[in-house]
Nucleic acid binder design. Structure first.
Lengths: 339, 339
DNA sequence: TTGAAAGCGGTACCAC
DNA sequence: GTGGTACCGCTTTCAA
């Protein structure tokens, strides 16, 4: 318990002094910005090294009116898909030299508070993976030149960019697979308060089926899970009376719950029914599930998100863009490849 | 695509002007710090409201030498326990009015870089949930008066506080349960490169068994999973030749994998063996697993972590403290209550 | 190329 | 109680 030296942090002034130049030169040397002689540059860099100098990001940000922070809005991180998306986002954010500010959103109020807080930190960008921030709120960001990108959100706010998995394509693949496997009656499982992405998947599934010649009015039904997640899927399986042969499911958690609920009733995939989920979470690959599912490419989504953010930082007035990221059908046991 | 008003953000100066006072008064009114007349205070607050004034945290932090940021170091967020811990931490951090800076650590290098970066943002504290930062590195924080707390880390650095689940107690509960259920031969499943917490659980399990009269040399064995997580547990189940009746497992992912691996070999809990895991992740509660497990109270852990952080901010020189958080045995199917 | 100086937006001390 | 003012640490003109 000896008392430690209470070293005040070293500033650009200290470096300047040691290198025998002015603070301005130090700044230039470190930011590669403004002209400087190779010699001075060298001396500064060495001095900085020797002193263990680290830029004060608060001061830097105050000046540049922009921190090296990127705000990420998430919710229910403990959901496997969400956490893997967050994982990928963090990786990408760090790779590009930014630092993530992450906030969990539990209500509309949180949403507003968080967005303001992000602005107060002069973030370089905001990534929304959850909730639908009201347009007026987002405009506070836009007017402060803070780029905003939504992931799997409904693309409806001007000057905001969107990155979405290609839900329609995924649903079409699922429909094709189930039809090809000989299913006749189809089900669509989703929660009642679905996200936009979920609804989109459902609609595209419906469309794809009818295109494939399925008699929608007779052979299609919607199963509504009472709650989100695994439990919702489980309940849905228990409560439904008569089940279709081919079921497409809005996400992986619902699908796993549904599978287990059916098991409890003594019904198993793929013999008694076929099931395709979305998200390809790690759990879907496990021995006890082996769920056929549509893989969302979170790495690519993250890459695109950061790219958009930087582009819009360059040119804030450019028109809103939406990028669709390919999904991939992963064949597992609940819906085998057609023979 | 109409061009938006490019409103510069409103500053304390603007508020001062509108309220007919000086910048200093504005600062006092908003920070409840320093004396001010009720009247002036009122006027400032109203002006701020009307203008939609928001403090610039960068400027504020620069001045106070401390931002309202708390750095959180995590790794492999997509692991269910880790993400639920992060979830709880974020909640608590926000509840206390801070904003989380989160960084994913993938290597020792990341660890150093991240810690420095946190310091550059003048964080109010650092929470380490992953990795073992070298003492010299942590001292850079300590000497800058940045409180550091480790969660489930080995308590070994001066001036750093630690919050840990009571692993020993958990292991003892597990041992008691297995012995009480009539198991004779015991196994301990862990990965070879275990965390400190994992090792501690194993040692306490061993201790508890011998205290309960188990012949350790004959009836105890260690099962080593080749890799982390579900797959590691799965492999371990496949490769072991003869299995003990009662198995305690370092974490939930290993346990689920093990359970599935055993299933593939046609062996099931609790008939063929009993299994107790750690972490009580959502997955362990699911129909297909129903795993008996030790619950870590992530909410309490998070609360304690923040409390320590704030305490040490008050008094940086106080001696290092370690807090043990109770764990709870959740009875499920893989190790039923003794008759 | 370089240094002086004017901020960035607040905070806090000090006279009044 | 209040306003003036000297910073916090860095960036960026602007003249030299």
């Amino acid at each position: 318990m000896s008392s430690l030296p209470r070293k005040q942090s070293v500033t650009a002034q200290d470096v300047a002094h040691r290198a025998g130049v002015s603070r301005a030169v130090v700044s230039r040397a470190l930011s590669n910005n403004g002209s400087i002689s190779p010699d001075a540059r060298e001396r500064v860099l060495r001095a900085a090294e020797e002193l263990g100098y680290q830029v004060n990001f608060l001061a830097q940000g105050l000046n540049r009116r922009r921190s090296h922070l990127i705000g990420v809005m998430v919710s229910r991180i403990s959901d496997p898909f969400r956490s893997s998306l967050l994982d990928a986002l963090l990786g990408e954010i760090q790779r590009r030299g930014f630092q993530a500010l992450v906030s969990e959103i539990r209500s509309e109020q949180d949403l507003a508070r968080t967005l303001r807080r992000f602005a107060q930190f002069r973030v370089s960008g905001v990534i929304v993976t959850s909730g639908q921030p009201p347009e007026t709120l987002v405009n506070e960001c836009v007017s402060q030149q803070i780029p905003v990108v939504g992931i799997n959100r409904q693309p409806d706010i001007p000057f905001v960019d969107y990155i979405c998995s290609d839900n329609a394509c995924g649903a079409t693949l699922a429909a094709g697979q189930l039809v090809g496997n000989g299913c006749r009656r189809f089900g669509w499982l989703n929660t009642s308060h679905s996200t936009w992405a979920g609804r989109m998947r459902g609609e595209a599934f419906y469309q794809a089926l009818s295109t494939l010649g399925v008699d929608i009015t007779r052979d299609w039904q919607a199963l509504i899970a009472p709650t989100e997640g695994y439990d919702g899927g489980f309940q849905a399986a228990l409560s439904a009376n008569e089940h279709p042969e081919g079921i497409f499911c809005a996400n992986a958690q619902l699908a796993c719950g549904f599978l287990d609920g059916m098991r409890q009733r003594g019904r198993h995939a793929p013999d008694d029914f076929q099931l395709i989920g979305f998200d390809n979470t790690p759990q879907t690959a496990q021995y006890s599930y082996q769920l056929t599912t549509l893989h969302q490419d979170v790495a690519e989504i993250s890459r695109q998100a950061l790219t958009r953010l930087l582009e819009r930082a360059e040119d804030p007035q450019q028109p809103s863009r939406t990028t669709w990221v390919d999904v991939q059908l992963i064949h597992r046991r609940t819906s085998p490849l057609s023979q």
